[in-house]
Amino acid sequence: MMIDKQARYLQTHEWVRKGPGNAYTVGLTAYAIEQLGDIVYLELPPVGKELQKGDIFGVIESVKSASDMYIPIGGKVTAVNADVPDNPDMLKAEPYGKAWMIQIEASNPAEFDGLMDAAAYEKFLETEAH
């Protein structure tokens, strides 16, 4: 399963990575995308929206269901990737690359260090699968 070694993770399968610059980039993991199946609709927040860690920042819908997405790190939304809602197929190909979802100006960067790292997330996925 594809994983980004630099990113940190939530058990709900969102990832967050440092950069670009002082911002943090947020997306959904390859595992989550595979579990959801065909993605047909994506709703992302507007630029400027203030989010607390754990808030719902968007909704991702497959043919079968709608799922909330949670923000791993609190702060203000500074950029939204408008390409992804227009072309959800890119989530399958590049969940950690071109299919990033939002960028955040973190209000408390220390929150990042408290998240699961790639190794811990991989271990978590093993328990999830069994």
């Binding site: 199946g37 065909d38 047909v40 497959s62 043919v63 079968k64």
Partner: peptide, 9 residues
Amino acid sequence: PIQYPAGIV
């Protein structure tokens, strides 16, 4: 089977 590898779409 809910879906095969091709997927619902």
